[in-house]
Design a binder for these strands. Structure first.
Lengths: 194, 194
DNA sequence: CATAAAAATTGACATACATCACTAATTTCA
DNA sequence: TGAAATTAGTGATGTATGTCAATTTTTATG
C-alpha cells in the first residue's frame, strides 16, 4: 500500500471478524492493497471492462448496476463503509463486467487484485477462512433478498428495506431505491405518500 | 463413512474441480461423511430443526422450500446429483431451519456436519479453497436468478429456465416449476399452452 | 386394475403495478 | 445566486399476473 493517511484499524477489524490475523499476516495483506480515491459520480468499473479487482470501501457509497437493452437500470448492490464490491462473476472468472460500479458519494476504496487474493488465501489460512465465511454470508443475504421477491409485494419490500437499513436509505434517492426494489419510481412514490 | 457400495469417484471428481486433493486428503474427508438414503417424499430437513449438516447429493432430486404464513410455498433450490443442499443460514450460524428439504426422487446423500467441515477446512487448505470457490459460484448463480426477477417477466423467466436446465425441468412438475419461478400454476399453465 | 389423490388446464374477474404525460420540488454547478 | 438538470409526485389508463371456481388429465396406491 502506498503512503497514505488512511486509518487501517477499521480494515483490520473487518478482516478479524471471523478469526484473527497476526500483525505480520495483516501486514502481508495490506502490502497487496492499492488505495483509490473517487469523486461522486465517478465510475469505478465500466461495463465490458475486465474485472481484476475487488474493492473494500473505507469511506463512501457506491452502487453496482445492470442496464437492460431497453435502458432500464437495476441496482444489484448498495455498498457503504466496510462492504466489498465488484462484479463477482467477472472477478472470479476473469471475464468482462456486466455491471457498472458508480460512486454516489466521494469515496476511498482498497483494491485487491484477483491474483493477490488467491496468493494471500493460499498463504494465509485465516484469510481463506475469512473469504469463505464472507462468501457464505453474502449468499445468505442475497437469498434473503430473493425471498422477499417471492413472498412480498413492492410496498412490503420497501418497508422491509426501511426497517433493515434505516440509515442507508437516507443517503439514497427514491429513484435508486426503486431501482433496487424492482419497481418504478412512480409506484414507489405512491407508497411513500401514505 | 460406513461400509457402502457407493462409488466415490463422482464425489472425488466434484471436490477436485477447483484444485486437486491427494489420496490421503480425500480419505480424510470421506471419513467424515455419513451416508443417508431417502425415499421419495421423505423429508431430510424440517422447519425449525437445528441444521448441523450440509448434504451432497450422490443420487436423486431434492428441493428446499419456504412456506409463508398464508400457506404459499416457494422453492428456494432444486438440487440434483453433484449439488449441495442445506439451509445455509441455519447451517453457518447453527440456527433452526426456516426451510424444509424434501426428497422428490429416491436419493442417496452424503452428510457433512458443520464441525467436520470446519475441522477439515482448517486441516486441508485445498478443501477450504474448494468451499470458498463453491460459495462464490453459488452466489453468482443466485445473483443471476435475482437478476431475472428484475429484468424479465414470468414467461421469460420460464423460458430461460427451460433453456438453462432442459433435463432438470423434465423431472419436475409444473406446479413446482411455478413455485420456483414465483408465479401461480395457473399463470404458468397459460404460458405452456401456446 | 380401480379408485383416490394430485396435477394441469381453462374461463371469468380482480388487482398490483407499469406506462405515459404532466407539474412541482429539489439539487447542481457555472 | 439563478438557470438547467435531476428528482419527486400525481392522475388516467393499460397490462401482466393473481384469485376463485370448475373440469379434465395424470399419477399414486391398495
Amino acid at each position: 500500500m502506498q503512503g497514505t493517511e488512511s486509518n487501517l484499524n477499521q480494515f483490520r477489524n473487518h478482516l478479524d471478524q471471523f478469526s484473527t490475523l497476526s500483525d505480520l499476516q495483516f501486514k502481508v495483506v495490506v502490502d497487496h492493497i492499492k488505495i483509490r480515491k473517487l469523486k461522486k459520480h465517478e465510475v469505478l468499473l465500466h461495463e465490458d471492462q475486465v474485472v481484476d479487482h475487488t474493492f473494500w470501501i473505507n469511506k463512501g457509497l457506491l452502487i453496482s448496476t445492470f442496464t437492460q437493452d431497453d435502458g432500464r437500470e437495476h441496482i444489484i448492490q448498495f455498498a457503504i463503509e466496510n462492504c466489498w464490491i465488484t462484479d463477482q462473476q467477472a472477478y472470479y472468472n476473469q471475464e468482462r463486467s456486466k455491471f457498472r460500479i458508480t460512486c454516489l458519494e466521494d469515496a476511498e476504496v482498497f483494491a485487491l487484485s484477483y491474483e493477490s487474493r488467491e496468493t494471500l488465501c493460499a498463504e494465509i489460512g485465516e484469510l481463506s477462512h475469512f473469504f469463505r465465511r464472507k462468501a457464505n454470508d453474502s449468499f445468505v443475504k442475497l437469498q434473503q433478498r430473493l425471498l422477499t421477491y417471492l413472498t412480498s409485494d413492492a410496498q412490503q419490500r420497501f418497508e422491509l428495506l426501511c426497517e433493515e437499513y434505516p440509515t442507508l436509505i437516507q443517503r439514497i434517492s427514491k429513484k435508486r431505491l426503486a431501482a433496487y426494489l424492482g419497481v418504478t419510481r412512480e409506484t414507489l412514490s405512491r407508497f411513500t405518500r401514505s
